[in-house]
Design a protein around this nucleic acid. Structure first.
Length: 293
DNA sequence: CCGCGGGCCTGAGAGC
DNA sequence: TGCTCTCAGGCCCGCG
């Protein structure tokens, strides 16, 4: 489900109720997420304060007063929902444990801010993991991630160097979290269309032989940044599972130019092509064969 | 090292 | 209505 804009939308929703707040009660109803939650999961959270809630690629990172970092990932179908704790303060635990949780609400946090945060994930491809902050740079989930696409360090030169000599497609390269971290199937397709580059194009063709960026590399980096910024602005894309933490839908799906639009006319001004769906490395790709070269 | 396909899960939607 | 089939926004692993 969630790519960078959706995860960032979730982060922004959680910050007001999590950052600076303490875990009062933690419940793990289902521990068998992508990987099992550790046995001491609840104890290592309860009583701790979230000092900062950050995002790296598609991971949420909660920096805790204990020196641990809670790493969270939404997988394909994960979402966080905030409801206000009802009743008197002393009834907090009662309402938490008896809360009207629904099927697939696997983990919940009752925070000192008064918020009840529920993690819902039907497919259970999501995960939560606790690691010591001091060991974070060795964390296997994070250590091989490429640059953040919205950071200054991600530019045409960096992308060109990473694509130099690569025989694989631009679609595969942009989907690779080791090259650039945070894009997924939707935003790769959307960025390539904005840059007018074919998803089938060999990645090496955005760099000179020496690895210098060409005009295509610049267009692609600009397109990636633009589409991500616009999608964050719109609260992400809601296809089936993504919701903002207040339950509202994201809006960026209304701005898709190619994703899930097979057969529809290409939105590029002056282009009379129709959007096509093909399969690359097992996943759907949507593009316009006329204006994307 | 690199790229590909399979697998992990559940649910929605299409077609019969 | 209900069955079967396909597909879904991610990522790890093993294979060649």
């Amino acid at each position: 489900m969630p790519e960078l804009p959706e995860v960032e939308t979730v982060r922004r929703g959680l910050v007001p109720v999590m950052q600076g707040a303490r875990f009062m009660t933690v419940e793990a109803r289902r521990r068998d997420l992508r990987w099992p939650l550790p046995n001491d999961f609840v104890q290592r959270l309860e009583g701790r304060t979230v000092e900062r809630l950050e995002r790296r690629a598609k991971y949420l990172l909660a920096d805790l007063s204990s020196g641990d970092v809670l790493i969270m990932h939404l997988g394909m179908s994960g979402s966080f929902r905030i409801t206000r704790r009802r009743g008197r303060k002393s009834f907090g635990h009662y309402y938490h444990s008896r809360a009207q949780h629904s099927l697939h609400d696997h983990v919940s946090f009752l925070m000192s801010s008064g918020a009840l945060i529920s993690f819902n994930d039907p497919r259970r491809f999501g995960m939560m993991k606790l690691v010591a902050r001091a060991a974070l740079q060795h964390e296997p989930l994070l250590k091989n991630l490429g640059p953040e696409p919205l950071a200054h360090e991600f530019d045409a030169g960096v992308l060109a160097r990473l694509c130099k000599g690569k025989k694989t497609s631009l679609k595969a390269v942009l989907s690779d979290q080791k090259i650039v971290a945070g894009l997924g199937n939707i935003y790769v397709c959307e960025a390539l269309h904005r840059a007018r580059l074919s998803p089938k194009r060999r990645a090496s063709t955005i760099a000179t032989r020496s690895g210098q960026p060409n005009e295509r590399a610049r267009a692609l980096v600009d397109a990636v940044k633009a589409v991500l910024r616009a999608a964050i602005e719109a609260g992400g894309s809601s296809l089936r599972n993504h919701r903002r933490t207040d339950g509202a839908l994201g809006e960026f799906q209304h701005n898709f130019r190619v994703y899930d639009r097979a057969g529809k006319p290409c939105p590029t001004p002056g282009c009379d092509g129709a959007i096509r769906r093909i399969v690359q490395t097992g996943r759907s790709t949507f593009f316009c064969p006329v204006c994307q070269k």
